[in-house]
Write a protein that binds this DNA or RNA. Structure first.
Lengths: 186, 186, 186, 186
DNA sequence: AATGAATGAGGCTTCATTCAT
DNA sequence: TATGAATGAAGCCTCATTCAT
C-alpha cells in the first residue's frame, strides 16, 4: 500500500513526530482526512509501515546457500547493499523510531530484529559445528559482532552522513577473515 | 542539573515524544511552567541532557593504558559495564532519540559518536602499526566491528530486553581473539 | 474573509491584547484551534486584517475631481463619513494597535498611512501651484494640519466618546476657509 | 518613582505587551518579584506611569501669557519641543497604548487629553472674542485642527520615523497664519 | 471513496502574583 | 526590603479524528 510506504519513508527520513495525517496525505497525494478511509487510526498505519519494512528486509530470505558462511555472507552483503539503495528504510530497522511510533505494538518491531538475529546465530553455530570457526567462541557474542557491524554501518552511513560507503564485500571479507582466523589459532 | 538528568532519563527510557514539560515537572517535582524558569525552552533542555550524557560517557576518558589493545579493552569493557549500570542512558548514545530531540543541534549528538569512534580507530591503527593485528585489514571496517558490537549489545540489552547480559570481559575476549588471530593467519 | 474582518473588529474595538484565538473563534463561531486551519499563525491573521483595512480605506481611491482642493475635500469628507459609519475601523488606521499587532510587518501599516499622506500633500502642492493657497506655506506642515485634523476627529470620536460628531462638511469648510484665506492675506 | 518612569518608557517605546515584571525589574535594576513590593499589582504601576506622564506634560502649565494666541503658541511649541526631546513619552499621550494598559482606568488617560483640549479651546475662544480669529469658525473644529496638528507631528516623528523633524516655531507660524488670515477675509 | 472544515485535547511557553528565605 | 523559585492560568499552536457534503 502506498500509504504504508509513505509512512515508512516519513518515519525513517524525518522522524516519528513528522508522521502526521497531513504529511502522509501530501506524500501520497490525497487529503488528510482521506487517510482514515484506508486505515482506522495512526496505530494501524504504523503497523502497516512495519509490515512493509519486514517485507522489504526479508524478500528472498533466507538465502539458499548450503554452506553456513556463504549463507551468512549472502545475507550480510544483501543487507549492506539494501542499505546503499534505501538508506532510510534500512536504517529504520535498527533505529528506535519505528519502535516509538509503534507504541503498544513493539513486538512487531522486535520480531524483525529477532528473525535476523536467529538466522545469523544459526549460521554461526553451523559453521562452528563444521569446524569453520573456533568452537570456543560464544555464538551469542559472535552474533552481536556480526549484527553490530551491520548496525554500525547503517549508523555511519545514515547518521554521520559518511560520503563514500564501504564496499559490502570488503566489509564481509574482514569479518570472515576474522571468524576463520580463530580456527587456525587454536 | 536535576532537570537535565530527568530529561535524559525520560528521553532514553520512554522516548522523545514523552519528554513533555508536564512529565519533566512531575519527574523533578515542580509544576510544568516552572521548568522554563530554568531553561529557555525545550531545545535548551535537550542540549543540557546531551551534555549530561557526554559527561557520563566520557568520564575518565580516554583510558591511560599505553598498549593500544589494552586501552581499547579498557574503553570497551567500561562502556559495557556502564550499559549494565545505566541501560537507558547508554542506549541513548546509539539511539536516534536524542538526535530527534536535538532538532537543530544534531552536531552535539554527532560529536559524542565521533569522539568514541575516533578513539577506537586510533587504537586499532596503533595496534596494526605494532603488528598486533594484521595490517591488511581496513581500520575503518575494524572500527565498525568494534563499535557495532557495543551497539548491538546495547540494542539487545535495552530493546530486546535480554535478561542476563553477557559478561563484558567475555565479549571483549572474543573480539580480541578475532583481532589478533588475523595476525597468525598471515 | 470573515476571520480577517473579525480580527480587525477586535483589534480596533478592544485592543491588540484581546485578539486571542478564542476571542476570534467566538466572534466567527468556530473553535479556537480551527482558526489556524485558515491562517498559519496570528501574524498572518493580523496581516489579513491590515489588508482588509486597506481595502476599506482605499475603496474608490483616489478621488477623480480635477481641482486639487475639490479632490482633497472629497477624500477628507469621505474619511470623516467612514469614521462615522465604522468608528472602530477608521480609528485603527491612526492607532498604533495595528502596528503593535503587526509585529515584524510594520511596513504594511506604514504604507497605509504614507499613501494617504502622499495624496494629501500632492493635492496641497497642486493647489499652491494653481495659486489657491499661499505658496509660502510649507506643504509638509499643511499636510500635517489636514491629516492631523482627521486624526483628531477620529480620536475625539472614538477615544473620548464624543456624542454628536461634527458634520464632515462643516469640518472641511473650516479647513478650506483657512487654507484659501492665506492667499488673500499676502 | 523610578518604576513608574520605567513603565512609561517601556509602554511607549516597546508596547504594552512588553510591560512585564521582569522587563521592569531589569530596567530598574531589581528582581522581578521585588516590583510588587512597591506596587500592589500591574494596574497600580500603569496608574503611576500615567500620573508620571501627566506630570511631564503639564509641568509649567498653563502658560502665563495674557494674549490668547501667544498662550496657545507657548503651549503648542512647548509640546513640539517636548516631542523632540522625549519622543516616546510624548507619543504615548496620543497613542492608545496607555489606554490599553490602563484597562479599567481609562478615565485617567482621558483626563490628560481633555485637559489639553480644554486649554486649546479656551485660547481659541478668547482669540475669537478679541477679534483675532474670524468668529464664524467653530471653536470645536479649530480645536481639532490645532490638537490634530500636534498629533500628526507626533505621529510622523515617532511612527514613520521621519528623520529631520520640523521646527516647532515654523509649524506654529503656519497655524497662526491660517488662523488670523481668516479674519482679513471677512 | 474523497474532501477539508471543525473539534478538542494536549503540548509549549509566558507572566502576574505569591512566598519562603 | 530584596530575592528568585514556584504556581497556575492563559494564550498559541498542532494534530488525530470525525463528519457533512
Amino acid at each position: 500500500m502506498q500509504i504504508a510506504e509513505a509512512a515508512l519513508r516519513i518515519i525513517s527520513g524525518k522522524g516519528v513526530h513528522r508522521l502526521t495525517a497531513q504529511e502522509l496525505g501530501r506524500e501520497v497525494g490525497i487529503a488528510d482526512g482521506t487517510v482514515f478511509r484506508h486505515f482506522k487510526d495512526k496505530a494501524e498505519i504504523v503497523r502497516a509501515a512495519i509490515a512493509h519494512l519486514e517485507g522489504v528486509l526479508f524478500k528472498g530470505f533466507p538465502p539458499a546457500e548450503p554452506e553456513p558462511l556463504a549463507r551468512l555472507r549472502s545475507f550480510f552483503v544483501g543487507r549492506l547493499e539494501l542499505m546503499q539503495r534505501l538508506p532510510g528504510v534500512f536504517f529504520a530497522a535498527f533505529s528506535d523510531r519505528l519502535e516509538e511510533a509503534a507504541g503498544d505494538d513493539r513486538p512487531l518491531v522486535r520480531s524483525i530484529i529477532e528473525r535476523s538475529q536467529a538466522f545469523v546465530r544459526q549460521c554461526l553455530v553451523e559453521a562452528q559445528e563444521q569446524g569453520l570457526i573456533a568452537r570456543s567462541l560464544s555464538p551469542d557474542v559472535l552474533t552481536t559482532v556480526v549484527i553490530g557491524t551491520l548496525q554500525a554501518n547503517a549508523f555511519l552511513h545514515h547518521r554521520l552522513g559518511v560520503k563514500s560507503p564501504m564496499n559490502p564485500n570488503d566489509v564481509w571479507q574482514v569479518i570472515e577473515t576474522m571468524l576463520v582466523a580463530t580456527k587456525q589459532k587454536t
